Amino acid sequence: MKQNILSYLGLLLVPLAAQAIEPGPSSKYQQETEHWLLLQSRGQAVSPIPQTAAASERDLSLQRWLESYKHPIPQFFKDYSGSNRK
């Protein structure tokens, strides 16, 4: 009984042990990527040319999406990672 109480108490204390990682110095490439993502999210890096799809392109993409529902969902997925394929 005492062991159960201690384990429950330990489980309650687990979230208190989780801490956020402090942002540290990042590489030049990461800073540039973060800068571009920030520009995109704020809408500051918008193309002056609107990119639209033709009606035929929209119909084809919609048809492709609808056909994806024709395939049954398998019971499980085989894992092919690693060197031995079975």
Rank of each mutant, 00 (worst) to 15 (best):
R42L: 14
L62M: 07
L38V: 10
K28Q: 13
S83Q: 10
K2E: 11
S7P: 04
N4F: 09
K2Q: 11
S7W: 06
V14C: 02
Q40I: 09
I73W: 06
Q44H: 13
G82H: 03
N84S: 05
A53T: 01
M1P: 15
L11I: 00
K28P: 12
S81P: 03
E22C: 03
Y69C: 04
F76N: 03
P50S: 06
W65K: 10
R42Y: 11
D79C: 00
S83C: 04
L6A: 10
Q75E: 06
P25A: 13
Q51N: 08
P23F: 10
L60I: 01
P25L: 13
S68F: 04
Q3F: 13
S7A: 08
P72V: 00
L60Q: 09
G43D: 11
D59H: 02
Q40C: 11
P72Y: 00
S26K: 12
W36G: 09
T33R: 14
S41E: 15
L62V: 05
S7E: 10
H35W: 14
G24H: 13
S68D: 08
Y29T: 15
A53H: 09
Y69S: 03
Q63E: 08
P50Q: 06
S7K: 10
H71W: 02
Y80S: 07
M1C: 13
L9K: 08
E32M: 14
G82A: 04
K86Y: 07
I21W: 12
Q44V: 11
L66N: 08
L12R: 05
